[in-house]
Write a protein that binds this DNA or RNA. Structure first.
Length: 377
DNA sequence: CGGGTCAGGGTTTGTGCTAC
DNA sequence: GTAGCACAAACCCTGACCCG
């Protein structure tokens, strides 16, 4: 205490209380937020601040005063996101975060506030996936605020709140794929077959050009995908991942269908689009889904999404005994994790095998053939 | 210390509604 | 049938973490 202090200043105010001040790393003079009864308390406070600065732990006490709405908008703006993600985040912000937190300062967003917000969201009809997504976005933003030294800790502390368990999707059988294909307009028949038996994604199928289909070598080159934006505009982009760029072999059973489709419905020219609407437009999800659901209703196949056809493709491929690596390359997955989603398919297959073995056992014992086995996948 | 697993987070698909 | 828009749900890549 004796001698000249090296860090900060303490002075006695006319009121008799003590005020501490120091120069922050940013060069600004920073008075303590409150005054102290004794000089000793003021000194102790300064010592704390000095420690923070030495550790690089210091943060601007004004930094967290930025309104969350403004901070969040900048967060999205500064990030390199694809147009679709940018739109999605903007939508989550606008509809779910902004109304509750927009005017609140970043530093004031506390765990209890977030818990209350989440409970309210879940009970007010917003779907669990969307709540989880909005929560995840909020946490990502608050995480950046921590990195920016605006706040010390991320207030998003609810464990597991950003993930939702999604139930397993159904898988269409070969027969169902054909039934659905027949129930669709002829121009979309082959689209369904290719989704089911090649396992291509919607965006990939829509992005196909004539030159991508090599009838001679019975292969489809997937080189781009079409993403649809809210604005109705489309973005042509490389597939979801580098592994998405791939060549997929065509089962010869549907080769005639593809050949026929190209002759009848595809846009002319090597750069012509393979799948176009009745008036020449690139198909849109909303309209196609309408047709799809009609086909589902017509065939009595309920609860089947178009994307589920992709599972059929993978399940079929898996049932041939293809290795995980082979499946990954066919489906355009870059990690085994994604491919392992189809583990259930193998389990089903294994059960079928077990059933078949069981049939053989009975046959061997009774000396007569057993009835028909379950539906083959 | 390398393979398996999990959570975070970016991207795509699903669907309803209105308008032309 | 096509287009625009908005919200919701699902997919799946990536890096962190765990564990033997």
């Amino acid at each position: 205490m004796a001698g000249k202090r090296q860090f900060g200043r303490v002075r006695k105010l006319p009121s008799g209380r003590y005020q501490a001040r120091y120069r922050g790393p940013d060069g600004q003079d920073r008075p303590a937020p409150e005054t102290f009864r004794t000089k000793k308390d003021a000194d102790a406070w300064l010592a704390d601040k000095q420690t923070e600065m030495r550790r690089g732990d210091w943060h601007d006490p004004d930094a967290g005063k930025v309104a969350f709405g403004a901070y969040a908008a900048a967060w999205i703006r500064e990030r390199e996101l694809t147009a679709t993600t940018r739109q999605l985040y903007g939508s989550l912000l606008r509809h779910h975060l902004e109304p509750s937190f927009g005017a609140v300062s970043v530093a004031e967003i506390s765990p209890p506030l977030i818990r209350a917000w989440r409970t309210d969201k879940l009970s007010s009809g917003t779907g669990p996936t969307t709540v989880a997504k909005a929560y995840a976005l909020l946490r990502a933003m608050m995480g950046t605020a921590v990195a920016d030294q605006m706040i010390r800790r991320n207030p998003c502390t609810i464990r597991g709140a950003s993930t939702v368990h999604t139930p397993e999707r159904p898988t269409a059988t070969v027969q169902e794929v054909y039934e659905l294909a027949e129930a669709m307009q002829p121009r979309y028949r082959t689209l369904v077959l290719m989704a089911g038996f090649l396992g291509l994604r919607w965006g990939e199928l829509i992005g196909l050009h004539r030159r991508d289909i090599d009838l001679e070598h019975r292969a489809v080159r997937v080189r781009r995908a079409v993403a649809e934006l809210f604005s109705g505009q489309r973005e042509i982009k490389a597939p979801k991942s580098a592994a998405g760029k791939r060549t997929v072999a065509i089962p010869s059973a549907i080769l005639p269908d593809i050949r026929d489709h190209l002759e009848r419905y595809a846009e002319p020219g090597a750069d012509g689009r393979v799948f176009i609407g009745a008036r020449g437009a690139t198909p849109r999800r909303n309209h196609f889904n309408l047709l799809w659901r009609r086909a589902c209703a017509e065939t009595g196949i309920n609860g089947m999404h178009f994307h589920d056809l992709r599972h059929t493709g993978n399940t079929l491929a898996a049932s041939t005994g293809a290795s995980t690596r082979e499946l990954m390359s066919r489906m355009g997955h870059s990690t085994a994790r994604a491919a392992l989603i189809y583990q259930h398919a193998s389990a089903d297959r294994d059960r079928l095998i077990a059933e078949a073995v069981s049939g053989l056992l009975e046959k061997g014992r009774k000396g007569r053939p057993h009835g028909r086995r379950g539906e083959a996948i």
